[in-house]
Amino acid sequence: MISFIVKRLLQSALVMLSVAFIAFALFRFVGDPVANMVGQDTSTEERIQIRKALGLDDPVYIQFLNFTKNAVQGEFGNSFTLRVPVSGLMAQRFPATLELSLISAILALALGVPMGVYTAIHRKTLLSKAFMTISLMGVSLPTFLIGILLILIFGVVLRWLPTFGRGDVVDLGWWSTGLLTASGLKAIILPAITLGIFQMTLIMRLVRAEMMEVLRTDFIKFGRARGLSDRSLQFRHALKNTLIPVITITGLQVGSIIAFAIITESVFQWPGMGLLFIQAIGNADIPIMAAYLVLIAFIFVVINLVVDILYFVVDPRLRSSSESGSE
């Protein structure tokens, strides 16, 4: 198991290095970084000065090395447009995105898994068909459209919930949370639903497909022939076997929630990293784009590692692969 994790860590490092390289290439080769940093009236001498200070005259691999070194410490330089350190901007925006993503992920899992199980077991009932219809709407309705519709219904027509911003936030040291105030909680409802629906749909479909597959296997048939109850077959035997593939995809899905937050944040003017990123794309603010990229990749890599470790917990075949030798 240790060797497996070490191997995974090495692979993750490779992925991070590639992503860092892409981010570096963005920074270095898309447009002229110096021109982006200074105003129109900066003299040529000053520009050369800045070039030197930034190390842009060094060989490319040294620049990349420095870039990586800084990136590891969370330093991505100053934003071109806002003229402040990117790290500060990200840190300030991070709690908003994470709170939104977590709430949506919990929503998606808490609804998606039971709905998937239910539709796999009761394929023909009315409720099952209703769930399947919801899921189809979920994949066919673009996230931004869901947001717009929710705003129209609950914000414009009914005027129940706020349609933009985070509401009041409470500072807890370096973390600012919106989950402790009434207005903050109200503000997160619509964005969280918007962001969660698509993921919920995917999780539900995955659980359903896997569950149906497992219910067709021989050991379920043999269990039935031993007189085991449907309840035990479905929840004790089938569900556990469904979990392995579900964990993989769910891990990836939860990771992608953070990126999908870009759309939701933009619809609801939610002050998170996604909004920052989309504005950065519009303004060609490369340092922010680079930092965002690296951060997302990092979150993905961490989630993947967690998924791998979960495999060991769930699947005894992996745990004891070294000691077996059965065949």
């Binding site: 992925v15 992608s256 990229l293 990749a297 993905f300």
Partner: peptide
């Protein structure tokens, strides 16, 4: 590497 980022 590409799968480390969502398509969008």
């Amino acid at each position: 590497v590409q799968l480390s980022f969502p398509a969008i």
